[in-house]
């Protein structure tokens, strides 16, 4: 190992001590607010959409308005006010317990940071379709790609972006296909492959693409990385959570799915005496 002088060891932290360095922007008091090189009040407010600025903050890039409009539409698609959905149920539980709307909404957003649904599976969805396209370009057939992915899951069609819990089929894809068409987006190579994969899965397993698969492929065609999409979508489920919070909040406390004692099924040990503590 390279020998360092003692002070060199923590020089990095000394360089940052008492200072904040930012590559994003900041408030220059009395002069203005900078946001990724833009003057926020002069250049952005009233001139760009909220979603363009959200994506700018998440990626450092100002995207064209139709990309931001597409994101706004998918935000609508992916958060609906049904408290049976897990993140929304967290919001409703916050409402019934009179949490603040911020606490309940944030709690619901956190619930969506899940391997099973919500924001996080988008990372796997984009990783899958991007690596699948790379494999396809190396000469693998779509059927081979599906077979390889299924073999990783014991032969089951558990490919991120395909099939979904509760229901078969996904009405959100139809809505987003229309949005993409209206905004003038062509079908790119990732989305083309996603449809091919869907055809194979439909033939072999009677399963179809879900909104994650559509979204991952579309956004891969737009040049987004998995982490960029995860960051843009951090608060994706917020509005449905808030709606469910309010619905429960506007009813008497603890009336959201109340449970009698008998509604829980106890399967633990039978009653037993607390033993005397052993001598240490």
């Amino acid at each position: 190992m390279k020998n360092k002088k003692e002070t060199d060891v923590f020089q990095l932290w000394d360089e940052h001590r008492g200072k904040i360095r930012s590559r994003k922007g900041g408030w220059l008091i009395g002069k203005g607010v900078l946001c990724h090189g833009y003057d926020m009040m002069e250049d952005l407010v009233g001139k760009y959409s909220y979603f363009q600025v959200l994506i700018l903050n998440a990626t450092g890039r100002m995207v064209e308005k139709r990309v931001a409009d597409w994101f706004e539409a998918i935000y609508i698609c992916l958060s609906w006010p049904d408290p049976r959905i897990w993140c929304n149920r967290v919001g409703a539980l916050g409402g019934t317990m009179r949490s603040s709307p911020v606490a309940a909404t944030v709690a619901g957003i956190l619930a969506g940071d899940s391997k099973a649904y919500g924001q996080k599976p988008l990372v796997e969805g984009l990783n899958f379709i991007q690596s699948a396209l790379a494999e396809k370009k190396k000469g693998l057939s779509t059927r081979d790609i599906v077979a390889a992915e299924c073999s990783r899951h014991g032969g089951k069609p558990q490919i991120m972006g395909y099939a979904r819990p509760i229901a078969k089929g996904d009405e959100r894809i139809v809505a987003m296909e229309k949005v993409a068409g209206d905004l003038g987006f062509p079908v790119g190579e990732h989305l083309e492959l996603a449809y091919e994969i869907e055809r194979v899965l439909a033939e072999e397993f009677d399963e179809s693409m879900n909104i994650n698969g559509y979204m991952s492929a579309f956004l891969s065609d737009q040049g987004f990385t998995p982490q960029e999409v995860y960051r843009i979508c951090a608060i994706l489920v917020a509005s449905g959570v808030t709606a469910c919070y309010i619905d429960a909040f506007e009813r008497p406390p603890e009336t959201f799915l109340p449970l009698r004692c008998e509604d829980m099924e106890y399967q633990g040990p039978p009653p037993r005496e607390v033993p005397p503590r052993e001598k240490s």
Partner: peptide, 21 residues
């Protein structure tokens, strides 16, 4: 491809089970 949405016949628990309490 025509898209239909159908409920799956997943069997959700009727009651929550706990061994703790």
């Amino acid at each position: 491809m025509k898209r239909r949405v159908e409920r799956r016949s997943e069997a959700f628990a009727l009651r929550t089970v706990t061994r703790i309490w």
